[in-house]
Design a protein around this nucleic acid. Structure first.
Length: 208
DNA sequence: TCGGTCAAACCGATGA
DNA sequence: TCATCGGTTTGACCGA
């Protein structure tokens, strides 16, 4: 799986890389950078050492359970779990290695994170979506810039064509040494397909 | 307080 | 049938 650097300013045309993503790395869990991390800390962390202790986990698990019981299926509004810094980090690390999980990996990761496999699955799902969105935004940005440069190039070429056409309308004339009649110094021809103008200099009238 | 943002969770469609 | 995806909903949070 190709990985594009987050701050890549590359303007190569090879922008369509299916499955590739800007794998953002921890601690910026996603697009928010430190902002998200701060939020995670605010929400989930006891203001001590920042590590997950057993109490927190058990509370989480309890809430999780109640969440599943009270969720949409239960008729009451679902309660939203906020992942801890640690959990986000491990998920990001795992995502960096692989954007999809097989059932065994999912199970293992869920166990490691003390989450439900379903939650890990959902997280990966959302993470893939965010990756894709970011990639699409990058491509969009690139296409905009490309469009801009093509527009500029088009403008220049049109101007050039205009100038060349003007030259053709009123070409400089020279007198023929034989007939003393005026004749064009050069002959301009335009390709009907690409509108490119080519000039043929007449050197010797006798050869015409 | 309110509007905006982010991300977890859900839902229905789809392909293997 | 199951995994995945795109789209949507919902809740937590932040800043004006």
């Amino acid at each position: 799986m190709a990985v594009m650097p987050e701050n890549s300013t590359c303007l190569e045309l090879t922008i369509s890389i299916p499955g590739s993503s800007s794998s953002s790395s921890f601690p910026s869990s996603g697009e928010g950078g430190g902002y998200n991390l701060m939020r995670e800390l605010d929400i989930n962390q006891v203001p001590s050492n920042g590590n997950i202790n057993e109490e927190e986990i058990s509370i989480e698990e309890e809430e999780e359970e109640s969440c599943n019981i009270n969720g949409v299926n239960g008729g009451r509004p679902r309660k939203k779990l906020r992942l801890t810094k640690e959990q986000s980090f491990l998920l990001e690390e795992s995502f960096r290695q692989n954007h999809t999980l097989n059932p065994k990996q999912k199970e293992a990761l869920a166990m490691q994170l003390k989450l439900k496999p379903r939650q890990v699955e959902v997280w990966f799902q959302n993470r893939r979506a965010r990756s894709k969105l970011k990639q699409t935004e990058l491509e969009c940005e690139y296409l905009k810039r490309w469009f801009g440069s093509l527009t500029e190039q088009n403008r220049r070429l049109k101007k050039e064509v205009q100038e060349l056409r003007a030259m053709k309308v009123g070409p400089p004339t020279v007198l023929s040494p034989h007939s003393c009649q005026p004749r064009p110094a050069s002959t301009l021809t335009m390709c009907p397909h690409c509108e490119r103008v080519t000039a043929t200099i007449i050197k010797d009238e006798s050869k015409i």
